[in-house]
Design a protein around this nucleic acid. Structure first.
Lengths: 192, 192
DNA sequence: TTGACTTTACCGTCCGGACGGTACAGTAAA
DNA sequence: TTTACTGTACCGTCCGGACGGTAAAGTCAA
């Protein structure tokens, strides 16, 4: 039970994601994961008894991390108008700045079994509902959601379509569209 | 040399994409593709000598189809401002209405070898450049590109996050943002 | 129009290797 | 003594791909 350093589980998850990104999810083998994570195959199978459990953990881990970040961002905004959209933008921005190489583990999971995406499906549906409810313009909330989804998919697929500057511009553009006090949209007082 | 009916190649490509979506790209086997396409494995390997060639064709086919649709839409717009963005929106809208199950073949390709995405990478980079050049507001072009990319990624991953109505709303929202004569944006005459 | 040959478009079988998973004996720290 | 592994050996299955064969369609000289 390591506390401060990286858990064995985390090391395995990270290794799996890295390998998937490098050689493609199809060629993600338990042998390779064990090797990169610095343990034996026996040790890997001790931690994750099947490959499916590993992939499941990969997805769960991803959703849990996002949700945690989102809740932290939302907590600062007390359910004000557009706060969910704004929080999403900031979470993406943060994970973009940190530039974690994790998400492609999800591709590996989906590639093995499309139903592994179900938790993300459910999560995103709820998130979108909350974004729409909390927004002054549901259609713009949709566009914001899709823009972020676009950014994340480019990362997921390791696409360098947008330069670093483009990405910053896109995020800043979104931020302005959903800024707390927007002079173009006098539908709400938007105090604070 | 079949003329009117579906080519053997097309049948194979379609079969491969379908299987990939159903069982996951990892479990996309040549046997299964051959079976679904209605020929033997030998016949399949006659048409595509290796699995890699099949996957490559899957990606190429996808890019080519998109490019053809895009050029047709662009041709109607004579390089007017925002015409590239508008054309993109219409192409997405058309393929959304038709609802082709094809794109997940791309996932299969990437899952086998991430470098198979390179043609798409290159294509999208050029496309984005053209969108920015042709747009009055490069940042809004970025957001449009990403929104469409978001829609496509949801389809790629077979996510039903957006309802049919949501998707229509999103497309119509985009359309309005980049409409030929937009009263909120008096930067160009935008005749026609 | 017929026979000889070529090309196209497959079929069916087989093989080597990779991979997921099992089994089990050992070990070092807590 | 339990926890958390290491390391090795192995099994069964699946899969990509090579290969030999073949039936039908097309080509072309006589």
């Amino acid at each position: 039970m390591r506390a401060a350093t990286l858990t064995t589980k985390d090391k395995i998850l990270q290794a799996a994601a890295e390998i998937a990104m490098e050689v493609g999810p199809v060629h993600l083998s338990l042998d390779a994961v064990a090797r990169r994570a610095g343990l034996s195959k026996g040790g890997l199978l001790y931690t994750f008894p099947t490959k499916a459990k590993l992939l499941e953990a990969l997805v769960e881990h991803h959703v849990a991390e996002f949700d945690e970040s989102l809740r932290m961002q939302e907590a600062r905004r007390n359910h004000k108008v557009n706060s969910v959209v704004q929080a999403c933008i900031e979470v993406y921005r943060a994970e973009f700045v940190l530039n974690e190489p994790e998400p492609s583990g999800i591709l590996a999971a989906i590639a093995n079994d499309p139903s592994f995406i179900d938790p993300i499906r459910r999560y995103n549906k709820q998130l979108l509902d909350r974004m729409k409810e909390n927004s002054e313009d549901p259609t713009m909330a949709l566009i914001a959601f899709l823009t972020i989804e676009g950014l994340r998919s480019l990362k997921l697929l390791d696409m360098d379509t947008l330069t670093h500057e483009d990405q910053i511009a896109a995020i800043d553009g979104l931020r302005q569209l959903f800024a707390p006090c927007d002079p173009d949209k006098p539908s709400q007082p938007a105090g604070g």
